[in-house]
Simulated scan of single mutants.
Amino acid sequence: MSKFIEELREAIINGDREEAEAITKKALESNIDPQVLIQEAGSKAMDIVGQRFNDFEIFLPDLTLAADAMKGSVGLIIEKLKETGGGGEDSVANIVLGTCFGDMHDIGKNLVSVLMATAGMQVHDIGVDVKVKDFIQKAEEVDAKIIAMSSLLSTSLPFMEDLIRILKEKNLRDKYYVIVGGGPVTPEFAVEIGADAYGRSAVDAREICKQLLSSGKKPPFEKPVILGDLKTN
């Protein structure tokens, strides 16, 4: 088993999707536990990649390739879990993710989606150009814990504030952690709109969501969490 784990981890770190998929297929055919592949190979590989990215040892193209390799592996694992009846959504945290209304960019969002999945979260990616009401509707539908909003356009930022305002009006604000991120988003903006967390990068977003879910603290927070701020119980 350790051979498959090490080889898959290395393929993902190197951003080699073809190799990652080939190793994943062999591992599954050898009856390696799919969850072990995700946690011991995929998740740990992305932890390493994420740390190297934060340390400026690698850059966005490298991170994107690694995430794509991980996505290929996870896709095969999900298919296997569906065949065997494993990996039900009831056992994991549901997260609704999308790009704000008026913004068609999806590269950053897609990267966040893959990285969150490697941390064992059930990501409901509702795409780009998403209206506020659709974020809320999906969150209610899947009983989400987190609503994650991304934007690369400053013209779409007001919709992040609108989401929080409408959640308050509907008495739903204490049901969801709201995390915001994207090029024009700043910690100061997150404070201004009353978000629970701010993700500087896809790697940060993944780690912050893990912290939020393990904190035992209910939203909303007095000030948004930035990576490393939140102390878990």
Rank of each mutant, 00 (worst) to 15 (best):
I77S: 08
L167Q: 10
A69K: 02
L152V: 12
K71T: 04
V96I: 09
V114K: 13
G15M: 04
E21C: 00
K223H: 14
F56I: 08
D90Q: 12
G108V: 00
I147K: 04
Y177L: 02
A93C: 08
D90R: 10
Y177A: 01
N110V: 06
V36S: 10
R9H: 14
D33R: 06
A11R: 02
G75R: 03
Q35G: 13
S113C: 05
A22I: 06
I32A: 07
Q122I: 03
L152Y: 12
N233M: 01
G98R: 02
I107F: 07
M149D: 09
A69E: 11
V128S: 10
K131H: 04
G75Y: 11
G216A: 06
D16W: 00
I38T: 10
N54E: 15
L8G: 02
L172T: 09
G127K: 08
T118Q: 01
K131S: 04
K26L: 09
V191Y: 08
G216D: 05
L172M: 14
Q35A: 02
D68Y: 10
K109Y: 06
V132H: 11
P61C: 04
E188H: 07
L153M: 14
G102A: 02
L115T: 01
G181S: 02
F56Y: 13
D33Y: 10
S150H: 10
E207M: 01
P187H: 10
L28T: 00
A67M: 06
M104T: 05
V185I: 14
D125V: 03
L81Q: 13
G15N: 06
V185W: 05
V92Q: 15
F101Y: 13
